[in-house]
Write a protein that binds this DNA or RNA. Structure first.
Length: 106
DNA sequence: CTGGTGACCGCTT
DNA sequence: AAAGCGGCCACCA
């Protein structure tokens, strides 16, 4: 599988996101290898080949706001799922100050 | 086959 | 300090 090596890493990183935490596209991209892949991360999640194994709803932009193109039944659905995990929201955006996945880069 | 886009972010000036 | 631009991957027309 020479094609999709980056995608595989992105999916792997997203799967490593713990329960009750959220990660940003840039952070996932950075953990995947390069920060510039943030855009690729968005596309990778857009494909979302395994929504059950890849909690793309735990991935939000740096602003802490969910993507407007969320396709899980509505943008609200993602917020509801995150709230169900205990993630706090401030004025409609995630409290990145305390719920951002604090993971250090290898 | 080529061009352009997309759920984004960091860096440079 | 603020604003603007580019960049990487894969898929569609």
């Amino acid at each position: 599988m020479a094609d999709g090596e980056v995608f595989s890493k992105i999916y792997d990183v997203v799967r490593q996101i713990p329960y009750g935490k959220v990660a940003t596209y840039g952070q996932v991209a950075e953990l995947a290898g390069n920060k510039r892949w943030a855009r690729v991360v968005g596309y990778a999640l857009h494909l979302n080949p395994d929504p059950e194994g890849i909690p793309c709803y735990r991935v939000v932009n740096k602003a802490g706001n969910a993507s407007s193109a969320f396709a899980f039944g509505g943008i609200n659905r993602q917020i509801e799922l995150l709230k169900a995990e205990g993630v706090q929201f401030i004025d409609g955006h995630v409290d990145m100050e305390h719920f951002r996945w604090n993971r250090h880069i290898f």
